[in-house]
Design a protein around this nucleic acid. Structure first.
Lengths: 142, 142
DNA sequence: ATGGGTGCAAAGGATTTGCAACATT
DNA sequence: AATGTTGCAAATCCTTTGCACCCAT
């Protein structure tokens, strides 16, 4: 059952579950659509009428801090979240603004010298930009 | 001479040069410090007293559109710009907030299947996050 | 009873827009 | 003169904060 996934995921990462947190976590685990704060708020507000946007903001930040979700900011001023923490890249379509997931054939390696200098890397994100196939078909550009 | 670099860079990419644009381009070409809009404004305002922040915003967006500079948004709400268009990654220090450049040993390759599906990739960015060596030495964390 | 979680309202910032003045060709 | 650029002021939008209430332990 989905709620259990959400529950255990939170607990395993040291996040105290609450109705709101479980709902948001569950939403992320069932919608890999890179939702924004607003998307999540709009989706859950009907279900949890008292939910406030503040809570969505706070919760997502909490999730990112605890590595149960990641914040994505491929383009300026369009921040969204992803519950998929496995290594993958994000492709942002300049035209429609959608974000697609993208497998990586090579996991990017930081330069050894850089690491040996003493820097500590704990997270990597790879962003691609371009035009997605749907938009290309419509021939608006290219 | 630096101004010439800026000039030709703009012209080559189809950006009409102007005093303001040249100054901003020149700034990017001589300061690989990942400046924010505000950094650039503060640096150039004394030299071009009439310069407005609006122009800095508009110009940097124009630059990004024309690929003469790239917009970087490693962390939420801290957008900055980079005049270095050669492939390299950015490392964001969670502690001090500075952004370091980082050589890539492997240029990340998009999955062939993804490209063959018809998507068009025209830009890649790789972001690392962690703690830089300076902050680690200070032992605030880790 | 205590501590943390939630949500309202307000504050705070960053970025964009409308429009008039200006510069350059 | 015409076109495109600039810059002021205002508007907009996103996000955070302060604080009181509420829930669960």
């Amino acid at each position: 059952m989905k709620s259990n996934d959400a529950y255990s995921r939170l607990v395993e990462h040291g996040v105290k579950p609450s109705v709101q947190r479980l709902a948001i976590m569950d939403y992320l685990l069932t919608h890999f659509t890179h939702p924004t704060v607003d998307d999540i708020y709009k989706a859950l507000h009907p279900i949890i009428p008292t939910l406030s946007k503040t809570t969505v903001y706070n919760t997502l930040r909490l999730f990112a801090d605890h590595h149960v979700a990641q914040m994505i900011s491929v383009d300026d001023h369009h921040i969204c979240y992803d519950g998929d923490m496995s290594p993958h890249a994000h492709f942002y379509c300049n035209q429609c603004g959608r974000i697609h997931d993208l497998q990586l054939t090579t996991t990017p390696q930081a330069d050894q010298r850089f690491l040996q200098e003493g820097h500590l890397v704990d997270m990597v994100q790879v962003y691609y930009r371009g035009i997605c196939k749907e938009c290309r078909k419509q021939g608006k550009t290219n």
